[in-house]
Design a protein around this nucleic acid. Structure first.
Lengths: 132, 132
DNA sequence: CATGCTGTACGAAGTCATTCGTTGAGGGGT
DNA sequence: ACCCCTCAACGAATGACTTCGTACAGCATG
């Protein structure tokens, strides 16, 4: 038994999320890539990044191509899926399950540009039409 | 020096958030209240709730009226403030700092009723007028 | 071949969140 | 006065996340 169901991938921790961010941006990356993108500038150790990525691999969050000496990692979970995962979590735990409450808060307190407001309005229109 | 700046209250943990939820709902509550609301039904121990609330008090997340034998707890942080706190966090860490990206995701993947959509549209209109 | 560089593997330590068992204090009822 | 119930206090155990030190392998250069 070596397989693992995708739906049961654990929620990435804080440090893991930062690493996933780098991998999503780059498509893939070595430990060195990640270390330089995240840890090098504040003195974080190389092995710290390595260990985290090993743990992530053990959890199934990333896959690894070890045909090269410097293993190349790639995110298994998509950025969108992970965003939705975190979103559901926070809606559930902090907004009493109401996504629109979250939206109202987000629009009210965080700033959005006119361009972004327009984009949101368009989506809103589409949702309105669809739920007719 | 016994005072503590509000802005430096720590982010509530998962378990603490659940307890805050009960206190926000009820306005205030004893350990027993919280235990029965959250832990009793799945066999969670009374002292677990107590300990968590003691920790929360030490952190300054709740205040305590110990004039009664059963101490009465009350949330120090408001629900709205905490919601925004979590929102900023997730926007920063998962949505590359873009609140509108989060809104688009939330609207797209989570369901919202027509009533809620209307409410959102009204806020959108107001924001549009204000940013004129 | 020795040295140095770059890489992985592994385990230990520290911190934090969570859970629970035990203890002792305080009252109320008998 | 004595027993029982409810409660707060405290410390211990566990488990997860993070960080880092050390060890070792492969490879190139002198």
């Amino acid at each position: 038994m070596t397989t693992r169901r995708v739906s049961e991938l654990p929620k990435p921790t804080e440090a893991e999320l930062a690493i996933l961010g780098v991998l999503w941006d780059r498509g893939s990356g070595t430990v060195r890539d990640v270390h330089e993108a995240l840890y090098a500038h504040d003195g974080g150790g190389y092995t710290t990044a390595l260990k985290l990525m090993q743990v992530m691999h053990a959890k199934g969050l990333v896959e690894r191509d070890d045909s090269q000496r410097a293993h190349v990692f790639r995110a298994v979970v998509s950025k969108e899926r992970t965003q939705n995962r975190f979103l559901s979590d926070i809606v559930e735990r902090v907004f009493d399950g109401s996504a629109s409450q979250l939206v109202l808060h987000a629009l009210g307190s965080q700033s959005a540009s006119r361009e972004e407001l327009k984009e949101i309005r368009q989506l809103l229109n589409r949702l309105d039409r669809e739920s007719k």
